[in-house]
């Protein structure tokens, strides 16, 4: 009996010792890479935001100039949680907003997007930042795969009218690839909702610029 207890204690202490040593190694690696990882993520975010705004159109740090959308409003943008709107400014005047939006009804799950909108409600650019759509089928919504997403540039709620914010297959304005309409349908629908949100919150977003 004593031997069993002793073996059990020895085993537990051995496992504990290994856990401590390897946790320390992981913690050390985390401490060494933490700042680099944070910078990488910030750079990646900044690069994506830059893709939805015309080059040289703003002079502020977008990541610093951001508004948090409360949870209740975030639902209108398809987001489950508090999301952000990055304000682009030129010499102190708001010249655009980059909005985090989500299409909840993608083929393989949520499609997260960044939408650049001008004070006049025109789309400046759209980028899909996260999706799980089928490679080779629905993933053409991603700018890295095709330029499909560029067709929204310059469009607004009146151009086309809200009821035309659909893919052509559904009687709308926008192109989609044959045999793969679920992903673009979700993106177009989410973009329409985003523009409706921007229109309703124009004053709060752009102030006198609108």
């Amino acid at each position: 009996m004593k031997t069993m207890v002793a073996n059990g204690v020895r085993g537990a202490l051995t496992l504990l010792a290994f856990s401590f040593v390897f946790t320390a190694l992981m913690a050390g690696t985390y401490a060494l890479t933490k700042d680099i990882v944070a910078k990488n993520q910030e750079d990646a975010e900044r690069a994506l935001i830059a893709q939805v705004l015309p080059a040289g159109s703003y002079d502020n740090n977008l990541l610093a100039d951001k508004k948090l959308v409360p949870k209740a409003d975030a639902k209108a943008l398809g987001n489950d949680d508090t999301s952000a709107i990055y304000l682009a400014k030129k010499t102190g005047k708001t010249v655009g907003a980059v909005i985090e939006a989500t299409a909840p009804d993608g083929y393989a799950g949520k499609i997260k997007m960044l939408v650049g909108v001008a004070p006049n409600g025109q789309v400046l650019g759209v980028r899909v930042v996260d999706h799980k759509e089928t490679p080779g089928l629905g993933d053409y919504i991603d700018a890295a795969i095709s330029n499909w997403i560029d067709q929204f540039k310059g469009k607004s709620l009146g151009n086309p009218a809200l009821e035309r914010w659909k893919v052509k297959k559904d009687g709308g304005e926008f192109d989609s690839h044959a045999g793969a309409t679920i992903s673009p349908r979700a993106v177009v629908k989410a973009l329409g909702k985003t523009l409706v949100y921007v229109d309703a919150h124009k004053a709060g977003l752009f102030g006198d610029a609108s």
Partner: peptide, 17 residues
């Protein structure tokens, strides 16, 4: 435990570099 620790270290290093 050893494998998980090594993978975590590789993952952190890849995320950084």
């Amino acid at each position: 435990l050893i494998i998980a620790a090594v993978v975590t270290i590789v993952q952190l290093a890849m995320n950084a570099y």
